[in-house]
């Protein structure tokens, strides 16, 4: 806009009550979508329990006595959870809001359609927190999971993991023409980043170049950074940087190309 833009007085925009209602609304949508609620939390937790029962609880002397459960399984479980919620679940809501006209309906009210995006992100964060808590409680009570050795490093790695996965999800929501195609694109992206990142049987089995790439795709960097933190080390800066770069690039492109109708 080139002309003078009048700044609306604060009360013209919806206030806190509207934000509360919108977040409550998105929460209902996520909870009422049973598959989208259960799978991103249930599937990684189930895999975690199976790994734990298969001997993951033994302490590994090479890792200073940290069990595989703490060193690898929990980092992989949390990464998978965040990736499923961020890359597959969240964009399917946003893409369907565009195709069914939910965003258009909102656009003629004092609320901006972008508010529903923010609300959906908030709810996805709540879902991630609940999932993390679920995995950690089960892990701690039955599978010998302990607190991360480097709490601050692990927390930073987790925050960057969430940011990178959600930014990828926003990019998918921005370009997917329909809700179905967003699920398809999301699943392909999810499996690609998981396979490269070592989620399907270890990066060591991949050819050299792919293994290197896999270390820096969001899934690989996330597992590496969380794993380092849980073992009490500082996460490798390169892994944190890879997550941060993914966040900036994906969210930047998403903001540029997001189609509102």
């Amino acid at each position: 806009m080139t002309s003078t833009t009048s700044v609306p007085i604060a009360s013209d925009r919806p206030g806190l009550a509207a934000w509360g209602q919108l977040i409550l609304h998105e929460l209902r949508m996520v909870v009422r979508d049973t598959g989208g609620l259960v799978i991103p939390l249930g599937l990684p937790t189930l895999l975690m329990v199976m790994s734990g029962l298969a001997g993951g609880t033994e302490r590994i002397p090479e890792l200073g006595g940290v069990s595989a459960m703490n060193a690898f399984v929990i980092p992989s479980t949390l990464t998978m959870m965040v990736a499923l919620i961020g890359i597959v679940n969240m964009p399917s809501f946003l893409a369907s809001y565009r195709t069914t006209g939910v965003l258009r309906r909102l656009a003629v009210t004092p609320a901006a359609p972008s508010m529903v995006l923010v609300a959906q992100v908030v709810v996805s964060l709540i879902q991630t927190i609940v999932g993390t808590a679920l995995a950690l409680v089960i892990g701690a009570s039955a599978l010998g999971v302990v607190a991360p050795g480097n709490l601050a490093g692990t927390a930073l790695a987790m925050v960057l993991t969430v940011a990178a996965m959600y930014a990828l999800g926003m990019l998918i929501a921005a370009v997917a023409p329909t809700a179905n195609s967003s699920v398809a694109i999301g699943l392909v992206t999810f499996f690609a980043t998981m396979a490269l990142g070592g989620g399907l049987g270890g990066r060591d089995n991949l050819p050299g170049v792919l293994a290197t790439i896999g270390e820096y795709v969001p899934y690989g960097s996330a597992v590496e950074a969380l794993s380092a933190g849980w073992q009490g080390n500082a996460p490798n800066l390169a892994h944190l940087a890879a997550l941060a770069i993914c966040t900036v690039l994906a969210s930047g492109i998403a903001a540029k190309v997001f189609r509102w109708e």
Partner: peptide
Amino acid sequence: GALPGKVRVGEAVKLYRS
């Protein structure tokens, strides 16, 4: 313009009222 399929009528009106 539409609404999500799983929103209840009363909830939608309350949301838009806000």
